[in-house]
Design a protein around this nucleic acid. Structure first.
Lengths: 242, 242
DNA sequence: TAGCACCTATAGCAGCGTTATATGAAGTGG
DNA sequence: CCACTTCATATAACGCTGCTATAGGTGCTA
């Protein structure tokens, strides 16, 4: 197709648009800036992409296919639930790495005219969830699960993007991720052979019990026993690893 | 201040902007449309609001205070968890009722310059959650819980707005809502004022923890401690009255 | 050489947000 | 009743935007 000499105008337009979109921090980028940076005049842009939005869609599509590729090379772990976590984190990371692209993809939501890749992201997630369902780990349909997970994932990512990079706290992501996953999937007991860290479920259960005990003291334990019990429970509830 | 005769230009601008924003389905609304609809010329707009965005902020602020008022008149149920559900649903409903406003508020997220009401929405939710925490129903700090809930809430609402109104399935909202709430709060099998027993949930939690501990032994407890802990757990798991 | 696609450039339109400047109206002190 | 400030509105225009009607190369196939 092309030697290394100089990319075709179409490519230059794509790169210039991507670069300017990345630099100018969320503010709109004009077609004139883009065409000038690509050393090209306006009609060239419209000849190749028909539209400013067409160009942006193309830019997004490029970044998005890169994202999807990364996802595809990700999900071979064999543990469906762990795959879900990885995809969630990958989604968030993609949003933080390419906030401009991400906002175009998910922030600019208009009924109709919404980038088709949102749908394909949903489809892909649904595929991963179907595998989880096949392993009898899902408690709802993959379709519903995918929508719920994607919605929460987008919400979290938008919120993280919105706040200054310094103050970002990924705990928000991890917490919401676990919330949605645990609502959608069974808590994957069962297969400890390969599982080195089943701790999350223990922690969750410990927290639950701890909370339950706050409102009702069981009479099966003496008060001194209960005191020590609660102390241990507290210790378990504080996850050490991860 | 004003008779019923005719509103002041400032008011007319606000109303015209709100109306046009509502009608024109997500497409941008120009200042010229607005000023013309308000039977006013451009400088009047800039005199009163300084900016197009200033005008839009004012419009959003109006709708948002209405929303916040509705929320405030809502949260007197006395049951913190049920309050959370109501606020979640109210949030979603507001988004579906005023999608244009909603998108300006939560969709247009740019670092800096983001409408201050997002912060106040978060603060308000945190307030509700603080009440839940006071009732010992929270398993995380109200701050974190508020951020997580709001993120998921926004994500769900955006997704619902994005899809055609006919196809909207509020199940997505309910499902995600329960997921986040149950991750953030204890499941508080209703113990209203009368019944302070609540043993079932304790038993259930104990059983869950017991089960979880079977597959993964925490390293926070020594083996002898764990032995006694499990014994007590076993005792708690056995209902006294059976 | 002619014809034909394809790609790019010149020049310009209508619309946008915004503003420098000027005019009107309304209250206040002399 | 007049000067005076103060606020609110209007005229006209600037620089920018996305976009395009039209025309001019360029390289291929015949």
């Amino acid at each position: 197709m092309k030697k290394g000499g100089e990319p075709a105008p179409k490519t230059r337009l794509l790169r210039a648009a991507a670069a300017l979109l990345a630099e100018s921090n969320g503010e709109p980028v004009s077609t004139r800036q883009i065409t000038q940076a690509a050393r090209v005049t306006a009609p060239t842009l419209y000849h190749h992409f028909g539209d400013k939005e067409g160009l942006f869609d193309a830019v997004v599509a490029e970044g998005f296919s890169e994202y999807l590729d990364a996802e595809r090379n990700l999900s071979a772990s064999g543990q469906p639930i762990e795959d879900l976590r990885m995809h969630w984190d990958n989604h968030v990371q993609f949003g933080l790495d390419h906030p401009h692209l991400y906002l175009v993809m998910f922030g600019n939501i208009r009924p109709e005219r919404r980038p088709s890749m949102v749908a394909s992201a949903e489809a892909f997630l649904e595929e991963v969830l179907a595998r989880a369902a096949a392993a009898a780990r899902l408690v709802v349909s993959p379709h519903e699960a995918a929508r719920s997970m994607l919605a929460a994932n987008v919400g979290v990512t938008l919120m993280l993007i919105a706040e200054p990079a310094a103050k970002r706290n990924l705990e928000l992501s991890a917490m919401t991720r676990e919330a949605v996953i645990s609502a959608v999937a069974t808590d994957s007991e069962g297969d400890p052979t390969t599982d080195t860290e089943g701790t999350p479920s223990v922690v969750v259960a410990a927290i639950a019990l701890n909370a339950a005990l706050q409102s009702s003291h069981p009479d099966q334990l003496s008060s001194s026993e209960l005191k020590l019990f609660l102390e241990w429970l507290q210790r378990i509830s504080t996850r050490s690893g991860s």
